Computed example of a mutant assay.
Amino acid sequence: MQDNPYPFSIKQWSDDDRPREKLVQKGRAVLSDAELVAILIGSGSKNESAVALSKRILASVGNNLNELGKLSVEQLSRFNGIGEAKAVTIIAALEMGRRRKEQDIKKSGQVNSSREAFEVLLPTLGDLEHEEFWILYLNNANKILLSAQLSKGGLTGTLVDVRLVMKKALELGAVALILAHNHPSGSLRPSKADKEVTQRLKKGASALDIKVLDHLIVTQKDYFSFADGGLL
């Protein structure tokens, strides 16, 4: 039998197997990750359905949507059946999900524990493949006045300008700071440089009666708190 020269479209499936119809009839929660990705791409290749292709893409990242969100257009386009337009659609959808989560977490704007600080910072720092250092500026009710990037790249003392940090704190009327940076390697062990930068900022803040409440090391799945670990 001759191969079908056209992509294996979702429209060719039976009604029970179509993820779009399944979503409409039964709700979004019943769809698998592969079915949701299949809706985004619409069709597979002539030898592979959209769901089968989606399963293959997800398998390549350990069925982890966070890891899928890290793939570039070029990396996604290496899969047969995924062109630039479909790759962009997948990336855009996952980025919208990340921003939605970030907005939901920041809605209250109040941070009362290391876990809550981690949840605020995770959408920003969790998926990065390079290191960034951020500061949360807080008022006396522990509400976030500003979340600001301090540096990008490896963390060293030379990258931290204590005067600029304190100037911004005074402009905002902040009374407390939470420091944070990510470890793309996944390690939660604080380095010597991490500890030195923490102490420099803590000393500078103390002179202005501003508290450094914590310093978090953030990875994709977990965090280390200097405060909880007794390092502040």
Rank of each mutant, 00 (worst) to 15 (best):
S9P: 01
S9H: 14
I10L: 12
K11L: 12
D15F: 11
D15L: 10
D16V: 13
D17S: 07
D17Y: 06
P19Q: 03
E21H: 08
V24R: 14
V24I: 15
R28M: 14
V30T: 11
E35R: 05
E35M: 02
E35H: 02
L36R: 14
I39K: 01
S43A: 14
N47P: 04
S49H: 02
S49M: 01
S49L: 02
A52D: 11
R56I: 07
R56H: 13
I57G: 00
L58E: 02
G62H: 07
S77V: 06
N80V: 15
G81T: 00
A85W: 07
T89K: 12
E95C: 08
M96F: 13
Q110P: 06
R115A: 15
E116W: 03
E116I: 00
E119T: 07
E119M: 08
V120F: 06
V120R: 04
V120I: 13
T124C: 07
L128H: 07
E129P: 11
E131T: 12
F133H: 09
I135P: 05
I135K: 05
N139M: 07
N142I: 07
I144Q: 04
L145Q: 08
L145D: 07
L146G: 05
L150E: 11
G153H: 02
T158P: 05
V165I: 15
E171W: 09
L177N: 00
H181I: 06
R189M: 15
R200P: 01
I210L: 09
K211W: 11
L213M: 10
L216C: 05
I217N: 03
Q220D: 09
F224L: 09
A227N: 11
G230Y: 02
L231F: 10
